[in-house]
Simulated assay, not measured.
Amino acid sequence: MSKLLSVFRIVALLEGVSYLLLLFIAVPIKYISEDPQYVKMLGMPHGVLFMAYVVIAIFISAYMKWNLKTLAIVLAASVIPFGTFYVEKKYLKQTPSA
């Protein structure tokens, strides 16, 4: 399960970066220069990473011994800019007691 936790850390990082790129680079370019190319280019990878983040978070919640409130925070962080970085710092650095 620790391998899945490592994968989740990577997915969380990539999901957070892709969300920031989409939100703060691609969307403004779309509306300022009327060029939706970047949204189309970043949208699909971000969507896949978002779904992977949610699924893996649900799988590792039992391993990490998260209660429903913590799981809800971890899941909500995926739709808040910089949220996945907060999850990494607050919830993923700790290791559960075996």
Rank of each mutant, 00 (worst) to 15 (best):
M1A: 10
M1K: 07
S2A: 15
L4Q: 00
L5G: 10
L5Y: 14
F8G: 06
R9C: 00
R9K: 09
R9D: 00
V11E: 05
V11Y: 06
L14V: 01
E15F: 00
G16T: 02
G16P: 01
V17E: 15
S18C: 04
Y19V: 03
L22H: 05
L22V: 03
L23S: 13
L23I: 05
F24T: 15
I25Q: 11
I25T: 10
A26Q: 08
P28Q: 04
I29P: 06
I29D: 00
K30A: 03
Y31V: 03
Y31M: 02
Y31L: 03
I32Q: 15
E34N: 12
D35C: 11
P36A: 03
Q37P: 11
Q37S: 15
Q37H: 14
K40W: 08
K40T: 15
K40C: 10
K40M: 15
M41K: 09
M41E: 11
M41A: 13
L42S: 09
G43R: 10
G43P: 08
P45Q: 11
H46I: 08
H46K: 03
V48R: 05
L49E: 09
F50M: 10
F50K: 06
F50Y: 11
M51Y: 01
A52L: 09
V54C: 14
V54A: 13
I56F: 10
I56S: 09
A57Q: 04
A57L: 09
F59Q: 12
I60M: 13
S61C: 00
W66N: 05
W66S: 00
N67T: 02
L68I: 13
L68Q: 12
T70W: 06
A72S: 07
A72T: 05
A72Y: 01
A77T: 04
A77V: 06
A77Q: 12
S78E: 02
V79M: 13
V79E: 09
I80A: 15
I80E: 13
F82W: 12
T84K: 07
F85P: 13
E88P: 05
K89I: 11
Y91C: 06
L92R: 06
Q94V: 14
T95V: 14
S97R: 11
A98F: 00
